[in-house]
Design a protein around this nucleic acid. Sequence first.
DNA 1: CCAGACGTTGTT
DNA 2: GTCTGG
DNA 3: CCAGACGTTGTT
DNA 4: GTCTGG
Length: 248
Amino acid sequence: MCFHNSLTATVAEVEQRFEATNKTKQADFEPVYHGNGFDFPVWPVITAQAPKSIQLFQWGLVPRWVKTKEEAEEMRANTLNAKAETLGEKPSFKYALREAQRCLIPSTGFFEWQTVGKNKYPYYIRLRNQPIFAMAGLWESWHNPAYPDDIWNTFSIITTEANPLMARIHNTKQRMPLLLLPGSESLWLQKDLDTAALNEIARPLDDSLMEAFTVGRLVSHRTANSNVPEVTNPYAYPELSQQQLSLF
DNA sequence: CCAGACGTTGTT
DNA sequence: GTCTGG
DNA sequence: CCAGACGTTGTT
DNA sequence: GTCTGG
């Protein structure tokens, strides 16, 4: 869940939304209409350690104890997401959690598939009143022992149980990204967040704040370039009932 | 004890 | 680095 | 889902 | 043809 994200905002918009300054080497971001986690794209993030800065980290968390580049590359396909419920137990995430290496991952909407019979229908999901919002993440800085200058700053998107809207869409896994209300964003970045507070924040967002609609199957095509504006165009599947087409 | 895992959920 | 499975 | 692998044994 | 990896 949550391997398919988007960020179609300018640097200025992200700066304004999160009250942070662009510290990347890029004057602006390329809009991401469809970012596939398995491509391990770089993404703007805001860390607890530098909450006033926008940095570019790579999606797919590489734990600090990884020994080789090969192991790092293998690991990250499995750490695109991190289950909120078990962050403290998993060797891949526990050190990042212990040292409060939490972060915000700006998004303008994400994709998920609904299984109906033998078919899969892609949906685009976003927040009603917030064009840009934050997913909760953990980050790590991995230093390649073979090359001291080879440092990988990576992140993982936290997932939690699905709310009723997301349970209908992502009906096989019943999971969703941990979405933060603006009021929870600064809490997530606080360094001394205890377990009770974390568990309180790590709850599924109220689905009355979200909206979702079916999109065309371009997003599902691996060979085609799906990182184009049309990927989020609404598309009505005749065989789906009206209530499934648009979940507002 | 040592070796091996360490993780999550994907699709026209 | 630490836990798990054999 | 699609792309790519799919296997074994050796020597100069 | 079928399994695996991404």
